[in-house]
Design a protein around this nucleic acid. Structure first.
Lengths: 208, 208, 208, 208
DNA sequence: GATGAATGAGCCTTCATTCAT
DNA sequence: AATGAATGAAGGCTCATTCAT
């Protein structure tokens, strides 16, 4: 009794190999042979589980999307719990978490890969965005709206405010690391950048 | 009298074809044959002007870098003239210009292409970043420092402040358009986002 | 149960095709496409068994070298048995064998090919020489030394004497056939040339 | 008043460049571009003087043939003068000259090149042979015939005798150097080999 | 299900040759 | 006569995909 569905162990083994190869080479430069070698299966087996190179790539993005979605569920929890806690410490934690995520080598590679493939696979890029940045932004905007309703923040456009906060955290990292191939920020720099983001955000939208 | 130097017309013709192909396919997926077809020269001619596919790609980045540098010279002028003008209108103009640049299809494709190739050509990605985002950030930080000295702004860390302003303008666009393959923002959305960026920036660093 | 080692049937099939093409065109003028066609395999299969055109060429030389080595083992046996037989008939047989070998079309082509590639592949040419002419000369020189010790020949320099005998047999054939593209000698001419070589050799080194 | 005939200085300049390139690479691996560079003319000029790569190669062989012919005219003179001199010293001189010629790098390369191209250009190889080895052999055979007639040598088959003498000199050198890529013989080895050739030749065909 | 040998289209690059100047 | 830019046909090699075992 075996299965080649999404739960198969071999399927995961292949996806792991594919992730390593696709992340470091991008879609076009990755070769099925190297993926097979990396996943320690034969080339033929690849095609037992995935119809084509594109399908394998797509499955990888979908998987990454799912992992991101699951991780972001904890954001929901945190946001819900944060309703009654102090705003500043919570935002600082949020900012720090975002930046730490954005400096991780795997995240950098993933962004590079998806961006590099966005012209060829707009649908996948869109899914990746929706599950990650898009979802995160929507949740934060909703939380801001709640805080405004509760009188703890003052913001006319929660959508834009959410983007501003996220942008101040993520962009300096991804512009320098993912695009500029500069070394990732150390903890101290992250701390200072996060605090500055919170400070600026609250200067604009904080109570009073 | 002909020349195969950087001024040659045929060289430009090739670079134009290469830009179209590289921008829409990325480095690895672009083929020299398609570039030749697009540039309306023979495949052999490609190699008269460029030693290899990599060299052609590199020349393209260098050219884009140079164009960006030249365009940013006007930023210098504007920043200098802006010393005595009102801060808010100037920042609004800056924000609008940034966002309009970031929604241009060619810019989107260029960022996607350079990001997708950053793993293989870190040096080129770095050059591209240095000439564009890096240079722009440095100029803005210097300007902020001057404003602080003149008492028109209050900012402890001009470096971070500059990144915040740039990020609030660029990130919402590039995250949604370049990564998320969403339609670019229209003029109205740009206006509102730009104004919000200026407003938030001045709330944090403005006089008083 | 398959194997791509030196025993694989397909490998032999490829080497056979490669031999035909390399022998008739030389290394540089041979094309992998033609070899594939001649071997009745696809171009890709060539690269499953051999890493490159050079590797395929090298394997061909090594194989030819091995065949030559094996064939020359019988020379050892003959030389050993010839110790007690009459010298003249044995030398005549040796001379005839040498000349017959040197007029064979495949041998002519092989020498042409190796010579033509000696500038680019000196190591391979050296291996080919060592296994063939070099080994044969060494064996004959050793045999002559033994005959001198036994008082059946008188030669101060067995090395030079061996070269003289071999040269009188081989050079007239290879100069005219391999270099001059003249028709190979018929049996009668071989007989006369062989007898003359033995006669001259014995006039110089024979007993008394 | 200019001429593109065989006397043109530019033609010679091209042939010189072509010789260097063809000799070191062989026909197929040589490129017209490199020849043009080596000859310090444009690629187009090559085709003003020679119809094709093959024609240039052919002209090179013809020129080498002519030079060889001219050089061999002195052999005629020497042979004529040698009629009355002692045979042994003359033959020793002849043998030494042959071997010195055969160890010259240019001669080694020329033989390799012509042999490597003999399959494709049998006519040229034939011309090269006729003007060199073939002509030399014929002259020596004629001289031997004269010596026999004069009672200074005893040989039934002057043709074979001439080949034997030439072979004992040339083959040990070309087998080891041109084929085996071994270092060329030094002067001492040439002296010993030449003397041994003369000694063996005279043992077989000398007076008495 | 898993394998890996085999395929052939396609890629980057080179090169003999042509032609307008 | 001389140039060198331009061409397009190969050439060596890779790789996604298939299929018999």
């Amino acid at each position: 009794m075996s299965e080649s569905g999404p739960e198969s162990a071999k399927r995961k083994q292949i996806l792991d190999g594919a992730r390593r190869v696709f992340l470091s080479a991008g879609f076009a430069a990755a070769s099925m042979g190297e993926i097979a070698r990396e996943a320690k299966v034969s080339k033929g087996t690849l095609y037992v589980y995935f119809d084509s190179k594109e399908a394998l790539f797509g499955a990888l993005i979908v998987e990454a999307k799912r992992e991101t979605s699951e991780r972001l569920l904890s954001l929901d929890t945190e946001l819900r719990e944060a309703r009654d806690s102090d705003i500043a410490p919570f935002l600082t934690m949020l900012a720090t978490g975002l930046m730490e995520k954005f400096r991780m080598p795997n995240h950098v590679s993933m962004v590079r890969m998806v961006m590099g493939a966005a012209d060829r696979f707009p649908g996948l890029a869109r899914q990746f965005y929706d599950a990650g940045a898009g979802y995160g932004h929507a949740r934060l905007a909703a939380w801001i709206t709640e805080q405004v309703a509760a009188g703890r923040l003052v913001a006319e456009d929660a959508d834009i405010a959410a983007w501003q906060f996220i942008s101040m955290c993520c962009h300096p990292v991804s512009a320098r690391v993912a695009l500029g191939t500069l070394p990732p920020p150390d903890d101290e720099r992250i701390r200072r950048t996060a605090e500055a983001a919170v400070s600026t955000f609250l200067a604009a939208y904080g109570p009073r």
